[in-house]
Computed example of a mutant assay.
Amino acid sequence: MNKINVVGTSATGKSTFSRALAQKLSLHYIELDNLFWLDDWQECPDEVFFAKIESEVKKAHQGYVIDGNYTRAIPVKWAEIDTVIWLDLPFPVNLYRAVKRAFHRARHKRDLWADSNNQESLRRMFGRDSIVWWMISTHRKNRQQYIQMMNAPEYQHIRWIHLKSQKEIDAFLAGLDAAAASV
C-alpha cells in the first residue's frame, strides 16, 4: 500500500486523513483541490490538471497519497494506484461537518489551498456554488458511484478499504501506528 487515493463526499475529512496517512507511511501528499482550483475560483482545464497530477506522481519516488475525487481524472490518478480508501460517513455527519467547516472558513478568511487565493465567504456558503450545497447534492450519487466502482471488473486489481464511521477511520490510523511499533 504505497499508491493510495482517498475518496469520499465533501466534508468527510479526506484532507485531514490523507495528510495523516501520508505522514505515517512517509509518502508524498497530493491534494487534488490545490491542483485543480486556480485563483478566483477558476477551474483548471483538464489537460493542465492531468499534467499537474502526473507531475506530482512522478515526484513521489516512495509512493503517494492522493486526496480527492475528481472522477474525470481516474485514468491519470489510478494509472498505478494500488489502494483506494473510501471515507463514507453518514449523511447527517457530512452535513454537520460541511456547515461547520464552511462557517469556520468564512469566518477566518484564509486561503483554502496553497496555490490559489480562494476563500469561503458567508455569501458563498449559502449560494448555489457552496460546498454545503455540493455535499448535499452529491452525497448519494458519490456513494452509488463508489459502490459500482468497487464491484467493477476494471478496478478489481485495486484494494478497496471502505471506512464508514469516524471510529473506523481513527482505528485504521491507529492500526498503522501499532503496525509500525511492532516492526
Rank of each mutant, 00 (worst) to 15 (best):
A98C: 01
I147G: 04
S15N: 14
N34I: 10
R123K: 13
L35E: 06
P75Y: 10
V99Y: 03
W41A: 03
V48Y: 11
K167T: 11
E120Q: 06
R159Y: 08
L173R: 05
D170H: 10
Q62I: 08
I131H: 15
E168T: 08
A51T: 12
L163W: 05
V6G: 01
I85P: 04
D46V: 10
Q166G: 10
I158Y: 13
S130E: 09
A11S: 15
W134C: 01
L122V: 04
F17E: 14
L25V: 10
K77P: 06
K77W: 00
R159M: 12
L27V: 05
A152E: 15
W37E: 04
V132N: 06
S10T: 15
V99R: 00
E168H: 11
I158G: 06
E31G: 04
L21M: 05
V6N: 07
A102G: 03
Y146F: 09
I131C: 13
V99A: 07
L21V: 00
W133T: 10
D115M: 03
E120C: 07
P45Q: 04
M149N: 15
R128T: 14
I131L: 13
L122M: 14
V76C: 08
W133F: 11
M150F: 08
V93E: 09
K167W: 11
W160R: 05
A179D: 10
S26D: 14
R128P: 10
L21D: 05
E31A: 00
A102V: 07
K14F: 02
R159F: 09
L176A: 04
K141I: 11
Y29H: 15
S182N: 11
A181W: 05
Q166H: 15
E47L: 15
P45Y: 05
K58C: 03
S137C: 02
K164L: 04
K109I: 01
V132Y: 03
E54G: 13
A178M: 09
G175K: 03
K24H: 14
L89T: 00
G63A: 01
H108P: 00
Q156E: 14
T83G: 03
S26T: 14
D67E: 07
F172A: 06
L38Y: 06
